Amino acid sequence: VDNKFNKEQQNAFYEILHLPNLNEEQRNAFIQSLKDDPSQSANLLAEAKKLNDAQA
């Protein structure tokens, strides 16, 4: 993981990586967004979790 991520951002990265119901395309999009703007990690994680739950 890129060293410019802080602890919260790293946690978001790993959580998104391991959400079971996202397809690869969705997962990659969230990860790319996280890399583009790490400050949005909490929002991105919340969105990813919502999508993950919706696809459960």
Rank of each mutant, 00 (worst) to 15 (best):
L45R: 11
N43S: 12
Q9A: 07
E47T: 13
N11V: 15
Q40S: 09
L19E: 00
V1A: 06
R27H: 03
E15T: 15
L22F: 02
N3V: 08
L34T: 02
Y14P: 01
A12D: 04
K49I: 05
P20A: 06
S39E: 13
Q32M: 15
Q10A: 08
Y14M: 12
N11D: 09
A54I: 13
P20Y: 14
P38Q: 04
D36N: 09
P20H: 08
A46E: 08
L34C: 09
F5R: 06
A46L: 13
Y14S: 06
L19W: 01
N28G: 06
F30Q: 00
Q10F: 08
Q10P: 01
A42M: 14
L19R: 00
I31M: 13
H18Q: 08
S39R: 09
Q32Y: 15
E8N: 03
Q40M: 13
R27N: 01
Q10E: 10
L51G: 01
A54Y: 14
E24C: 14
E24M: 09
A42T: 10
Q55A: 11
L19K: 01
A29P: 02
N52D: 09
E24I: 09
D53P: 01
K49W: 15
N21F: 11
S33N: 08
Q9S: 04
I16S: 00
F5P: 12
D37Q: 09
N6M: 02
N28P: 00
N23I: 12
L45N: 02
D37L: 08
S41T: 09
L51Y: 09
E8D: 14
Q32V: 10
K35C: 06
E25W: 08
K50A: 08
Q40F: 07
A29C: 13
Q40P: 02
E47W: 15
E47N: 10
S39I: 11
R27G: 01
D53Y: 09
N52L: 01
F13C: 04
L22A: 00
N28E: 10
E15Q: 15
S41A: 09
L22V: 05
L45H: 02
D53L: 15
D53M: 14
S33F: 13
Q40G: 06
D53A: 13
D2L: 03
K4S: 08
A56P: 10
F5M: 09
E15F: 14
A48L: 01
R27P: 00
L51S: 05
S39Q: 05
A29R: 03
Q32E: 06
D2H: 03
A54K: 12
F30K: 01
A56K: 08
A29M: 12
L17E: 06
F5A: 07
E24Y: 11
F13D: 01
H18W: 12
Q32F: 15
K49S: 09
Q55D: 05
N52S: 06
Q9H: 03
I31V: 04
H18R: 15
K7D: 14
A46W: 14
L44G: 01
N3K: 04
S33K: 14
Q32H: 14
D36V: 12
I16C: 01
D53S: 12
L34Q: 03
N52R: 02
A12T: 07
Q10V: 04
P38W: 03
S41C: 12
L17W: 15
N28S: 14
Q10D: 05
A29N: 07
L51F: 10
S33W: 13
A42W: 15
L44C: 07
L19I: 02
K50M: 12
Q40R: 13
E47G: 12
D36A: 15
A29Q: 07
K50L: 13
Q10R: 06
S33E: 09
S33V: 08
K50G: 10
E15A: 15
A56N: 13
L51H: 08
L22P: 00
A48D: 00
D2W: 01
Q9R: 01
L19V: 01
E25P: 08
A54Q: 13
E25H: 12
R27C: 04
N21V: 03
V1Y: 02
Q9V: 09
Q32T: 07
E24A: 07
A46D: 10
F13A: 07
N23G: 12
K35Y: 04
E47P: 00
L45I: 03
F30R: 00
A29I: 09
Q40C: 08
P38N: 02
A56W: 11
K4L: 08
I16A: 01
D37G: 08
R27M: 05
K7S: 04
L45M: 06
A46P: 01
A54P: 06
A54W: 13
H18L: 10
S33H: 13
D2N: 04
L22H: 00
K7A: 05
K4Q: 08
K49A: 07
I16V: 06
K49M: 12
D2Y: 01
A42V: 11
D2R: 02
F5Y: 06
K4D: 14
S39V: 08
